[in-house]
Design a protein around this nucleic acid. Structure first.
Lengths: 340, 340
DNA sequence: TTGAAAGCGCTAACAA
DNA sequence: TTGTTAGCGCTTTCAA
């Protein structure tokens, strides 16, 4: 069978007009019971399925949310996506997902496709925070929600994690355990998360009157190798730190690898806290302390924001949510014995 | 600005008919150069974007591939999806992704949605291999490709990994290193991967005349917690194994966590091989030996299969690919010293 | 409670 | 080389 029955086939079989059929498939009521029954059985007899395309054409909505992420293989995003999808399905929305591989050009392409397809809303972690290419979506009246990375050049709803607070908590913890030579492995300073996590580090040091030593600030790029290099660099620097804070999960991994190879004893010779939980955190020894983010919740909230805006085109002010990450203290940060 | 210009607006501005505009936006040629230029500039002046919905309506194709996975947070799938997406984009296709959380009911819902939306093809790792609900897709002439899990009750193109061979290789390796008390942490036996990986285990034991001890077979469900429980169970069983084979990545992680907590020395007291590579494999001490699958390649092939079939409605025989996984030996499997 | 009919924006066959 | 026009399958007035 390859023939797709249409609303007209149903109407013919049930001996009513297509308008009446439309009423029952949309549960609009106002149809006599007997008529409805005839229609329902005609539908199942024919195996009729209403065409979402024709429907979208008429209604000017697709019930789909476009999702753009920079890297679907980074475990953070599948969790966020799961949260979005879950909530979306509950509300009758579906998602079309694309990964940019951090490429601005790919992102532009995807935006264009979303525009053509008439998505009802977009949830994005952009590869380029200036966001000029994203503006076109907004110009078409398509609600946008930025997740994890802000968009700079115009106003959109945003759900971020309080990066400053997260790294502040982590560094403060290290300070309270008696560390003073605390290093940071930074993310790129031209991204919000990268910069903010550095600011939290600075803030904690200032608050406790610990001078910031530039030699303890290593510029990474959020990739594993830069974490690795960072640890190496710090190990061999003249002012070897007694504690390290790493700005993201991938760099944490590189870093721990390096510590292993250097035989730089985690927890004993050097305390450690990383931003973002990693799978390995609880099964290396000692267990890693981390700053953890509620990934699924982020997705759920993001969907709620687009959803609200889809159904309130005009009247909503810009909303900016800042979720507080949680410091999970395990074993990799210990009192600074070397001080004593 | 919230008004969406249509092909008519473009035609009016360029002072031609909509047919001519259609010709240029579809690169069909046969349009005088000057005319084309006028149209192109009208398009950019108005910011015209062709409606994919209207186009699909007319052409009876959506250029979208539906993807159904059981669990998007399992790192295996994002890699497969990345492969699909990559190839798809090259060919002008886009993907709509849904995760069933292993629920048959959710899967049925999604199938229905895909049907309504008129996807051109579906790539699925099904939560229920009997596949009766999926049959509806095929009845509508929508090509299906099964990935990682076969579909039993009718014929579809399939790309699988040779699970039997993969776990056979792993278990044989353990046997050759002198292990006899080799445990397996199974996946669900009503899924192909779960069952086949068990068969490979059995096959290896049989081949080397090692009797299968039911106490060494732990029934897991592919989730992390069941790997954790499995290791616990095996540790405390009267016939403690000297080697463990875990049937998937998530259970491997649970398992390694448990080993740590139990202080059951990996590689020394218990050798270990897991199915599927995991991020942490090279990272923990000792490094984990694993059976590795070419995930991105699987996705690329899957897309190629649907694509072929979309463009060759009738004429293709059923195709079934079986990729051979690779045993990567690292440090977690060692000769069985306890035997000596 | 039901039906007739007007489109939604596009493609493609046909005509000019 | 260009234009006219008939739909694609549905929703939604408006009228009966």
């Amino acid at each position: 069978m390859d023939y797709k029955p249409t609303i007209e086939d149903v109407a013919r079989l049930a001996n009513v007009s297509i308008a009446t059929v439309s009423r029952v498939i949309n549960n609009q009521g106002g149809v006599r019971k007997g008529t409805e029954e005839r229609i329902v059985s005609a539908i199942s007899e024919l195996g009729y399925i209403r065409s979402a395309v024709a429907r979208s054409m008429k209604r000017k909505e697709t019930n789909t949310i476009g999702i753009i992420v920079p890297d679907i293989t980074n475990p953070f995003f599948p969790h966020v996506v799961a949260g979005i999808e879950q909530k979306a399905r509950e509300k009758g929305y579906y998602t079309i997902l694309s990964s940019t591989n951090e490429s601005q050009k790919v992102e532009e392409e995807i935006v264009k496709i979303f525009l053509e397809r008439g998505v009802d809303g977009v949830i994005i972690t952009t590869a380029n925070e200036t966001g000029d290419h994203i503006k076109r979506l907004q110009d078409q009246g398509i609600p946008i929600v930025a997740v994890d990375r802000a968009i700079k050049n115009f106003e959109v709803d945003t759900v971020l994690v309080d990066n400053i607070n997260g790294s502040y908590q982590a560094v403060r913890q290290l300070i309270l355990q008696g560390h003073e030579k605390i290093a940071i492995i930074c993310g790129p300073q031209n991204t919000t998360p990268g910069h903010e996590r550095y600011l939290g580090y600075k803030k904690a040091l200032e608050e406790y009157n610990i001078p910031l030593d530039p030699n303890l600030v290593f510029q990474g790029d959020f990739r594993e190798t830069s974490g690795y290099k960072g640890a190496l660099h710090l190990f061999y620097s003249k002012n070897r730190p007694t504690a390290i804070f790493s700005s993201n999960n991938q760099m944490t991994i590189g870093c721990v690898k390096a510590l292993n190879e250097l035989d730089w004893k985690l927890g004993e010779e050097v305390s450690f806290i990383g931003f973002d939980d990693v799978e390995i955190a609880t099964f290396i020894k000692p267990k890693l302390s981390v700053v953890s983010r509620p990934m699924t919740t982020i997705g759920e909230i993001a969907f709620q924001l687009v959803y609200d805006r889809i159904h309130n085109k005009e009247s909503l002010p810009k909303r900016e949510l800042l979720l507080t990450p949680e410091l999970i203290i395990r074993e990799s940060c210990q009192p600074n014995y070397q001080k004593i």
